[in-house]
Computed example of a mutant assay.
Amino acid sequence: MTKRYDAINWNKIEDMIDKLTWEKLVEQFWTDTRIPLSNDLGDWARLPKNEKEMLAKVLGGLTLLDTLQSQDGVESLKDSIRTQHEEAVYNNIQFMESMHAKSYSAIFSTLNSKAEIEDLFQWINTDALLQEKTETINDIYQNGTELQRKVASVMLESFLFYSGFFAPLHYLGNNKLPNVAEIIKLILRDESVHGTYIGYKFQIGYNQLAEDEQEEMKNWTYELLFRLYQNEVKYAEYLYDEIGWTERVKVFLRYNANKALQNLGFDPLFPDTANDVDPVIMNGISTGTSNHDFFSQVGNGYLVGMVESMEAEDYEKWTV
């Protein structure tokens, strides 16, 4: 017997957060082709060789994570949708994750030679630390429960990307590579919405669990985070030790690990707050996407706090 197929009705919203998130993501839409990356070639030429190698690997690692999210991560969340509108939001997220992965290639094709790009992708696909974190997350996508998959997704969106985001934000704060940083800031803005939205959906399911199941889920989450953090520290040391940025990156990682937990409705694990993060980096996040103004609010200035404010109490207000 053929199953009846129901048309999606955007005039009848079951969860207002689906509609608000859809509108925010559409409002933020962008493409890499609008960013004049070639304007950064002068800054790139003046960077020391070790910094060029570091930045290429940083962006390469981000490419792998966005590939995982676009090919397997978001798809794994669709098995547990609660509304048709939720699936539409996931479709939007999935497309933008593909856009993010493509944008890194736009950077490589502008700054690197063909041989350098080939060597870089060989490194991406074989580096043990990179593969460890993608295999850990993907195993959960393939074999985890509904809530475990959402936790893994939030960990990736709100935490694992940030070791890579640090370098472009550092250069931006020092008046270098502004167009590379612009792409990173656009990606960061998207990931902030993705992490809060998926975290919200996690909290709906989590709050329906029995008390003992909640405790088990919470413990599993903290154990996963600590495992990912241990690997991420080694990854940061590999990337940044030679140029002396590692300790600042670790603070940024711990701060964003706490933000991932916040998105899931859990208490922070680490003592680090925004006040502990290098102010150059925090300023790079909060000053917005000011270089380009090609869509209504894309490039017009954006505070990450606008997304970070999408916490549980705000969701409750919106759904009243």
Rank of each mutant, 00 (worst) to 15 (best):
E27M: 08
T246V: 10
F252W: 11
L37M: 04
Y240P: 03
I187Q: 08
G173C: 05
E118C: 06
W245T: 04
D190S: 01
L160K: 00
F161V: 07
W220M: 13
F202P: 00
I35F: 13
D127G: 04
M96G: 00
A115Y: 07
D18I: 03
E53S: 13
K49A: 13
N125A: 08
M310F: 14
E311Y: 14
E216I: 13
L225M: 12
N256P: 05
A236D: 00
E211N: 11
I187S: 01
S153H: 13
D278L: 14
L224F: 04
K57Q: 13
F108P: 01
D272R: 06
V26Q: 11
A260R: 02
G305R: 02
A257H: 03
V304Y: 07
Y90M: 07
S158R: 08
A88T: 08
L269M: 12
D139S: 15
L225T: 01
F294Y: 15
D241G: 05
E242F: 13
R227C: 06
M306T: 10
T196I: 05
R254G: 04
E118T: 12
D40F: 08
S286D: 12
D15I: 10
L20Q: 10
Q297W: 12
M54H: 08
T196C: 09
N9A: 09
L253H: 07
T246I: 11
E132R: 10
Y255I: 03
K234D: 12
L269C: 04
D190C: 05
L64Y: 03
E86A: 03
F159M: 14
D119C: 06
L59V: 05
L225N: 01
Y104G: 02
T21R: 06
H100F: 07
D314P: 05
V180D: 04
E211S: 12
D127W: 07
Q122E: 12
Y162W: 15
L62I: 07
A45V: 06
L59N: 01
F294K: 08
L160D: 00
H292L: 14
G173Q: 02
G244M: 09
N283E: 13
L261Q: 00
I285T: 03
I137Y: 02
L224K: 03
E97V: 05
S38I: 05
R82K: 09
D293K: 09
G42F: 10
L68N: 02
N91M: 11
Q94R: 15
F165K: 04
A56I: 10
F95K: 12
D314V: 12
G60T: 05
I187V: 15
S163P: 01
F121P: 00
G42S: 13
F294M: 09
I93E: 04
I183E: 03
D119N: 15
V58M: 06
T145A: 06
G199W: 00
N300W: 06
V58W: 05
N174R: 15
M16I: 10
E23A: 11
K114A: 13
L47A: 02
Q214F: 03
M54C: 12
M1Y: 06
E313M: 11
L65N: 00
K3Y: 09
D278K: 06
W318F: 11
T246A: 11
F161C: 07
T246W: 14
I285C: 05
E116Q: 15
D293L: 10
G61M: 09
E23C: 13
S98K: 04
